[in-house]
């Protein structure tokens, strides 16, 4: 996994305007003007957001047409999914260890609690 790509994705997602831009692009491609409209942003401001999204690889902009429509590139979001998978493994294994640890604590201190129960094997 490319760490820089992942962090760029997170950084891009951290801003509510950029998330809204992605949400808009999830419905289909749009021109810079169309994207700027709902936010009341100046052309330089919208360009800055689009640049961040583009650098994160989350959007791409057409080259040929004069209005250069933007469209969503969902691939980096899959990078985020990979990160989530790692986290899931981390937590899943931690919980396995927690289970073992609690068992160990119980055998160390038998009768510490009012529900003594033989280990069901």
């Amino acid at each position: 996994m490319d760490d820089d790509q992942l962090s760029a994705t997170f950084a891009a997602l951290a801003d509510p305007t950029r998330r809204a831009i992605l949400a808009r692009l999830a419905t289909g491609e749009a021109t810079v003007g169309e994207l700027a409209e709902p936010f009341n942003l100046s052309p330089p401001a919208i360009s800055k957001h689009l640049k961040v999204l583009q650098q994160a690889g989350l959007i791409e902009q057409g080259r040929q047409a004069q209005w250069r429509p933007c469209r969503l590139r969902p691939e980096p979001l899959r990078e985020v999914a990979i990160w989530m998978t790692q986290y899931r493994r981390f937590l899943g294994q931690s919980f396995d260890r927690l289970d073992d640890y609690l068992r160990a604590l119980r055998t160390q201190q038998p009768g510490d609690h009012d529900t003594p129960q033989g280990e069901a094997q």
Binding site: A23, A26, T27, G28, L72, P74, L77, R78, A81, M84
Partner: peptide, 14 residues
């Protein structure tokens, strides 16, 4: 649009 976005969310979980 929301359905589209759900698709996007599905991508997040692969």
């Amino acid at each position: 649009a929301l359905e589209q976005f759900d698709r996007l969310a599905d991508l997040l979980t692969g």
